[in-house]
Design a protein around this nucleic acid. Structure first.
Lengths: 336, 336
DNA sequence: ATGAAAGCGCTAACAT
DNA sequence: ATGTTAGCGCTTTCAT
C-alpha cells in the first residue's frame, strides 16, 4: 500500500505538502498541487481513514441507528441521509437493532461509542432508559428522526396535526362513523408516533361532536398483513360498519383496501380509506393520504448535523417538517 | 476521552496488558483481566477504532455497496447482512450510488478504497467497466449478491431456473396464452437478472411448443407503478388477452393484480398471475410466487466474507441459493 | 504473566 | 510556500 510518504518521496517534497495539496488547503503553489495530484493518482495512493481519523480526530463518517432496515419509512429516510452524506464526502455507518433484541447493548457500547463516527442520527425507535441516557450524553452532535425522544433534538412532521388533517378530511366529506387503524409497538419502533396519531384521531372526533367506538379502533401494527386481518374482522358485519377508516400509515391502508375488496365493499362508495405517508404504492393504488417526505426529512437532518460539524456550533431547534393532504380515489362522500 | 493509557496508569500496569486483557487474548492472569475490565468500565473507556485500525490493519467494518436503498430486495438483503455483522462485532458501512449518477466515482475511489473497511459486499448493480475492474482488483475479500458480475464471486438464486419454474407452473395449469412483465434497467440495478429471467421465460415457452407474443412482453421496470400502467394497456382488449402473466418480480405482479381489478378481470378465473420474490405483501395479497430469501442471501454472503477474514484464506465458490414455488390464490387453471 | 518501545499513516502546530 | 516534528491511541514484537 502506497502511503503519503511514498508520494512525498517520489516528488521530493514533504508529507505535509502532500497532505495540504490533496486536501485542497491553502498555502500550496498551484503547480505543486497539480504535481502532487497527478503523482498520487499514478501511484494509486488512497489515504487511510484510520490514520487521518486518528490524527485529526474526525472520522468523516456519520452513524445512523435504525430499529429495522427493511421498512419503507426507514429505508426512505436512509436514502435521503445517504445523498447528503455522499455529497459532503461523509461515509454512512449503519447500526440496526434488528428485530430480536440480541446484542443491543453491544451495538450501543462497542460500536456507537467507539469513535468511529463524528455524529449520530437516531431513527424513531424505542430506547431503553439507559440507551436514551447514553444518547443524551453523547459528546458528538446527534438528532432523532421520526418520533421524539425526550431530551434529544428531533426532526419530523407534526404527527398530531397530520392525523387531524386526515380525520377532518373524512369529517368534511360527511362521515360520522369513522374507524381507526392504529400502528403498533413491534420492531422496536417508538411508541410516540402511533400514540400521537391515535390521540389526534380521538381529539378530532370529540371536537366535532363524534363518538369513538372502541370496537372500531383496530390494531394494524403498521403492517399490511396485520391490518388486513384486523380490517376483515372490523368490516365483517354489513349492517354495522364504519363508512370510513383513518389509518396511521399507508401500508395499513393497503391492508384495509385489500380487506374491503375481499369483502366486496366498494371504495369509495361504501367505504372511504385514508392513510399517512404517501408510500410508493399509494399513487398507483389511488389512495388518499397525508404525504410526508421521509427522504427529505433524512436529508434535512443530515444537513443539520453536517452544518454543526462544519461550523462547530449547535444549530437551532429544527421546526416541524411539512405534510400535505393528497386526495385520490379512496375517499368520497359518506353514503346517505 | 479516557484512553488505554489512563486505564493502564490507573491500575499501575502497562498498556499492553490492558490491550490484551480487553481483547481476551491469552497471557493475562485471570485476576488481572478482571481488574482491567472493571476499571475500564468504571472509567468509561471506549477503544478508538481509528487507533486500533491503524495499529492492527483491521477496521472491523464491512462495506456494502447498493444501487439504491429503498427497494424491498436491497433493504431485505441489508437486514440479513447486518445481523451477521453485528453478531461478529463488525460494523456496516453503507455505500449507495443512489439514483442520480452524481459522485459515483467519488464514492468508489474516496470511500470504498479508503481502507475504512476490511471487506466489500456489492449488491446486484450495473457497474461501469472501470468500476468492475476496481472491484476485481480489490485487495480485500469481496462478493457480489444478486446478479452476477463477470470476474467476481457471486451469491444468489438460480434466476433462470426460478423463472422457468414459474412459467412451468402456469403451463402445468393449462395456460398457453402467457404474457411476461419484465424488469428493467432503472436504479442502476444490474441488467443480468431481468435478462436471465426473460430468457428463461422464452426458453420455457419454446420448450413446451408455445409461442411468445411480443406485444405480450411488457416492461414493468421492477416497479408497481410502471407495471400497472403496462398491464392496463396489455389487458385492455377483452377479446384478445393473455390468460396468465409471469412477472419477474412481486412488485410488478401487484401492479398487474391492481390493473386486473380495475379492468374487472377476475383473478384467477380469467387471469393467473405469478411473481418472483415472496415480497412481504405477497401472502396477504394471495399472490402465487417463487420465493427467494434475500435476508438469508445477505446473511450467507456476510458469513462467507467473515469466514475469509477470520481464516485468512478464500472460501469455495458459493452454490446457488434456494428458491421455491409458493402457490396461493392468484393462479388457477386456464379458462376453457 | 507482564513491560518497553517501535511503529501504523496521517495531521497540525511551529519553523523557515 | 514548504519543511520538521510531535503526537493521535492503539497493537505488536521482543524482552524480561
Amino acid at each position: 500500500m502506497t502511503s503519503i510518504d511514498d508520494v512525498a518521496a517520489s516528488l521530493g517534497v514533504s508529507t505535509a505538502t502532500v497532505s495540504r495539496a490533496l486536501r485542497g488547503l491553502p498555502g500550496v503553489a498551484e503547480e505543486t498541487r497539480a504535481r502532487v495530484n497527478s503523482t498520487a493518482k499514478e501511484l494509486g495512493y488512497v489515504p487511510s481513514s484510520s490514520a487521518s481519523g486518528l490524527a485529526s480526530g474526525r472520522t468523516m463518517a456519520m452513524g445512523v441507528l435504525v430499529p429495522v432496515i427493511d421498512r419503507w419509512f426507514f429505508s426512505a429516510v436512509l436514502e435521503g441521509i445517504d445523498r447528503r452524506l455522499r455529497a459532503a464526502g461523509y461515509d454512512l455507518v449503519l447500526f440496526s437493532l434488528g428485530g430480536d433484541g440480541v446484542n443491543r447493548d453491544r451495538v450501543f457500547h462497542r460500536s456507537i461509542l467507539r469513535r468511529r463516527i463524528d455524529a449520530l442520527l437516531v431513527m424513531s425507535m424505542h430506547l431503553t432508559p439507559e440507551e436514551r441516557k447514553a444518547v443524551q450524553q453523547l459528546e458528538y452532535p446527534n438528532l432523532v428522526i421520526g418520533g421524539a425522544v425526550e431530551g434529544v433534538r428531533h426532526v419530523g412532521i407534526d404527527d398530531a396535526q397530520a392525523a387531524r388533517d386526515a380525520v377532518e378530511h373524512l369529517i368534511g366529506l360527511g362521515h360520522t362513523r369513522i374507524a381507526h387503524m392504529r400502528g403498533g409497538g413491534s420492531f422496536d419502533i417508538d411508541f410516540e408516533v402511533p400514540r400521537l396519531r391515535e390521540q389526534a384521531f380521538r381529539d378530532a372526533m370529540t371536537d366535532h361532536g363524534l363518538t369513538v367506538r372502541e370496537d372500531w379502533t383496530a390494531f394494524g401494527d403498521f403492517r399490511f398483513v396485520t391490518s388486513r386481518a384486523s380490517a376483515l374482522a372490523m368490516l365483517a358485519d354489513p349492517r354495522d360498519r364504519p363508512t370510513a377508516v383513518f389509518c396511521s400509515s399507508d401500508e395499513m391502508a393497503f391492508g384495509v383496501l385489500t380487506a374491503a375488496a375481499e369483502l366486496g365493499i366498494d371504495v369509495p362508495r361504501d367505504l372511504s380509506v385514508i392513510g399517512i405517508d404517501d408510500h410508493e404504492f399509494a399513487e398507483p393504488m389511488g389512495l388518499t393520504t397525508i404525504r410526508q417526505d421521509p427522504a427529505g426529512q433524512g436529508a434535512y437532518a443530515a444537513d443539520l448535523l453536517l452544518g454543526e460539524l462544519m461550523r462547530n456550533e449547535p444549530a437551532d431547534d429544527p421546526p416541524s417538517r411539512p405534510h400535505a393532504l393528497v386526495v385520490r380515489k379512496s375517499t368520497g362522500p359518506a353514503p346517505s
